[in-house]
Simulated assay, not measured.
Amino acid sequence: MSGDQLRRMTVGETVGTGTDERPTALVGNDHEAPDSGGTALTDVLSSGDDPLDGDGSVDEGLVTESLDEILIAMIASSADETHGTGLMDELDRLFDVQLSPGTVYPRLHELESEDLLEMHELVQTKQYSIDDPSSARDRVERAVRQHLAIGLFLQASLDAL
Rank of each mutant, 00 (worst) to 15 (best):
E60D: 08
A149Q: 10
G61K: 02
L91D: 11
S78N: 06
S78E: 07
G37M: 09
V97Y: 10
V123C: 02
S57D: 12
Q146G: 04
E13R: 03
V140C: 00
E141P: 08
G18R: 14
G38C: 11
D80V: 11
S46W: 12
E60Q: 08
L108H: 01
G37R: 11
S47Y: 04
G3V: 08
A160S: 11
T103Q: 06
D55L: 14
D68F: 09
Q98M: 12
G48N: 05
A33M: 11
L148M: 01
L116F: 06
V58Q: 01
P34Q: 10
T24E: 12
D49A: 15
T85R: 07
P23M: 07
Q146M: 08
L116K: 13
L108V: 03
L52P: 03
S66I: 04
Y128K: 01
L52R: 15
E90M: 08
E21H: 11
E69K: 12
M1D: 01
A33S: 15
R145T: 09
Q146N: 11
L52S: 12
P133G: 03
S77M: 03
L6P: 03
G84Y: 06
H83F: 03
S129G: 12
A156I: 00
D96W: 09
F153L: 01
T42A: 01
V123D: 11
Q124T: 14
L122H: 09
D4Q: 03
E60L: 14
E81F: 15
L71F: 12
T39Y: 04
Q124G: 07
D80T: 10
R139V: 02
D68P: 11
G56C: 13
D59Q: 05
H109W: 11
S157R: 02
T10N: 00
I75H: 10
D89T: 05
A25G: 05
V11I: 07
H83A: 02
Q127A: 10
D35F: 04
V15C: 14
D132W: 04
P34D: 09
V58M: 07
L45D: 01
L108R: 01
S57A: 13
G48A: 13
H31Y: 13
G84R: 08
E118W: 05
A136I: 03
